[in-house]
Design a protein around this nucleic acid. Sequence first.
DNA 1: CGTGTAAGGAATTCTGACACG
DNA 2: CGTGTAAGGAATTCTGACACG
Lengths: 107, 107
Amino acid sequence: MSESYKHKKVITIGTVSEITGLTERQIRYYEERKLIFPERSQRGTRKYSFHDIEQLMEIIEKIEEGVQTFEIRQEMLKKEKKRDERKIRDDMIRGQLNARFGIQQSP
Amino acid sequence: MSESYKHKKVITIGTVSEITGLTERQIRYYEERKLIFPERSQRGTRKYSFHDIEQLMEIIEKIEEGVQTFEIRQEMLKKEKKRDERKIRDDMIRGQLNARFGIQQSP
DNA sequence: CGTGTAAGGAATTCTGACACG
DNA sequence: CGTGTAAGGAATTCTGACACG
């Protein structure tokens, strides 16, 4: 509800380039390496979210540290996996509490 | 701090058109009538914020009700004036409290 | 590996103007 | 008044490729 703007894909690659300082070439390359996932508009142009931009900021730092895109991707997948596991676990706990006591937990 | 994305001018007119359903002609016209205030990118293209888009949604409703752009502008200015007055009054109260008691009020 | 660049085409955006009603 | 449209130019974006190291 809050933060709803953060993930809307509405920013063109030119604007992302302006904000991040990256060249369009770099931005497209990081997509090729599956570090960011812009959507496409009807006409086929890439659309990025504020979240994508923040993601790029982190990528810039890693690249400067000499980390390779492949490794950055590994780290991202690892974090995602942990998040998923946490979610499954929490959902399960909520489900059991609900089944036994009919309690509505706040998410 | 929160809501920081809402007012960043990063969306091109084409995207605004897609989201709102308005033609570019209409969007530019509402700017001419001083109902919205996009910024310009380095190259001179208009950039809108999520807030602008919400503003446009309200404008659409008013227009459909038969309200003229001039009147919509009047209403906007009136609301702005009230907000300003409230702010001045509150700032003054805060200032006096602070002067007499040195209390830090939360804004 | 990560990035630059030249290439050509397609789509975008801009302004000022004429039109209708 | 609010909106459509044709006009011409300038800037954007896209893809696939070659280059360097």
